[in-house]
Design a protein around this nucleic acid. Structure first.
Lengths: 129, 129
DNA sequence: CAAAAAGGTTGACAAATGTAATCCTTTCTG
DNA sequence: CAGAAAGGATTACATTTGTCAACCTTTTTG
């Protein structure tokens, strides 16, 4: 369904809050956003409304307050965003990204080990099929 | 100087055109953007103006037309953007990004080999110091 | 030269984004 | 109960982004 799920900054914040734990009520989100973003109550309210319009989130009536949910899977959204970012910045090449980091000494020993592990696992996974 | 270099889509297009080859004249850019983005001449003109205001690009008077330059280094911009993307989507962890790709079978045999190579080189580089 | 193309500037408008104040209703709580 | 807090809807306004049309000047070219 949703093709172009592309979240802007503010939307990410709300989504992260929901992905971290679902559902949440208006006031819960208001408090969180006040903390993290310094948003006023109405700002959070407006975001919620707009995100419903885009069908990123929905709510169900709770006993007292509405319960906000998202049906988008974090993994999916993150993958999509990553792909489009990769396309923009690295012609779609993950290798190029990693390489850029490597070249600029952004990789610690630990990072390298971690990445090797990951690749190792990935290889095994490929062989399974 | 420039702290928050954060390019939007349209700005990327122009920047890519300049990074690919510098300097370029208005008309050169107009043609390229017409091709790639379907922009009208004035759209490209406006982008150029706005990007000058943000000091992403500048021009020098050429013999006839102005010559547009950018002083931003692609590497730098890309690194910054990557970091902020990584923060947003993966809590700053490159490993998590690669892992997500791996888990979702987005990595081909070739990708894996390439990445290994890169890590190998990165290790050697670290040892040098 | 006169028309066409290139070069360049302004003003404009819609949509998206960031941020909130107001106001109303329902529900707690001292 | 009466005031405070929670819950919610509306309206609003500035900025940024995406896109141009118009218009003017300078070059080029048939």
């Amino acid at each position: 369904m949703k093709e172009n799920i592309s979240l802007n900054n503010s939307e990410w914040c709300i989504m992260e809050a929901l992905w971290q734990e679902q559902p949440k009520t208006l006031m819960q989100l208001v408090y969180e956003m006040k903390e993290k973003q310094g948003w006023s109550k109405s700002t959070t309210g407006t975001m919620l409304r707009r995100m419903q319009e885009k069908a990123y989130i929905r709510f169900e009536e709770g006993e007292k307050a509405r319960l906000y949910f998202t049906d988008l899977k974090r993994e999916k959204v993150v993958l999509k965003e990553t792909e489009s970012f990769l396309n923009r910045a690295f012609g779609g090449s993950l290798g190029l990204l990693v390489n850029t980091f490597a070249e600029n000494n952004q990789l610690t020993e630990k990072d390298i080990e971690e990445l090797k592990q990951i690749l190792h696992k990935a290889e095994e996974k490929r062989e399974e099929n």
